[in-house]
Design a protein around this nucleic acid. Structure first.
Lengths: 146, 146
DNA sequence: GTGCAAGTTGAAGTTCACTTCAACTCAAGG
DNA sequence: CCTTGAGTTGAAGTGAACTTCAACTTGCAC
């Protein structure tokens, strides 16, 4: 069994065949065709799908995921090193997301609990008042990259 | 200035007027009306909107958020204690999400990097082989509640 | 008291990430 | 061979979360 049918590939990746076809149309994964025009997937494609699903969990759009996957070599099966490289870059995104979540967690009781989210100058939202002129809203809390 | 117009409320909450009207239609926030039928918001509503945006960051649907907000008192402005109670329950969701993200981070290099996501019996995905019969896919990694 | 930015409505449109459908073809077991 | 389950396509549908539009009304500054 060198390659997988779409059904087997779907079963092994946990992604529906319709989604796999969609990913292919969107240029996220690739397949070869049999003489009878049916898709066949290399096992290596499973890594792509796993990566896609993980990235989605982090809240990344398929557009961005496509861009990231574009860094993988086109003409050969990605090596362990290729994946490690990609994974490293994405670990950073994950770290950032984790940091955001932790800040949300830490602020949740404190900031919402005390009602200060309704105050423009809340110290938690706006730790050193740098953003006072940059507009309203829980800017730092929700958008730490500002 | 006792209450806020939709424009001011939008500016302070960081949410577009159209989104605020949508939230109201969906029963997530409330407003009173002037004699001329324009919306007026109490400052206390800002806390609701902040809560909504935070919950969305955690990946919760508006449906679920509505359900959570339904626990707040209807006939009076929620107190600090009301919010603290709600926040506590949601800290748990955040903790879970954070834990998931951390697992993703820890597994990302190891598991994708080594290519084992393509293997059904990968130890990281399937630590003690309990799930071998429960179907394919990176089950534990993506769906720890299983 | 008038001008005009800001507000109102319902209906329709948009984007994302898929799924469903209908009509058809392929492939593998008996 | 033939049946039958799996695969193919393009087009249309779905649901979530909004946004946009058109036509109209309000409310504040001058």
């Amino acid at each position: 069994m060198e390659t997988l049918t779409i059904g087997d590939f779907a079963a092994r990746s946990g992604v529906a065949p319709s989604a796999l076809r969609y990913y292919e149309r969107e240029g996220l994964i690739r397949s070869t065709r049999t003489a009878g025009n049916q898709r066949r997937y290399e096992r290596a494609e499973l890594r792509r799908v796993a990566f896609i699903r993980i990235a989605q969990q982090v809240g990344v759009s398929l557009d961005e995921i496509r861009a990231a996957l574009a860094d993988l070599p086109e003409n050969r099966t990605p090596t362990r090193a290729d994946w490690a490289h990609l994974s490293d870059r994405w670990r950073h995104r994950l770290e950032e997301k984790i940091a955001l979540m932790q800040r949300l967690r830490d602020d949740l009781s404190g900031c919402i609990g005390c009602g200060c989210l309704s105050l423009h100058r809340c110290k938690l939202i706006n730790p050193d008042d740098r953003l006072a002129e940059e507009g309203p809203g829980p800017r730092i809390l929700l958008n730490p990259a500002d």
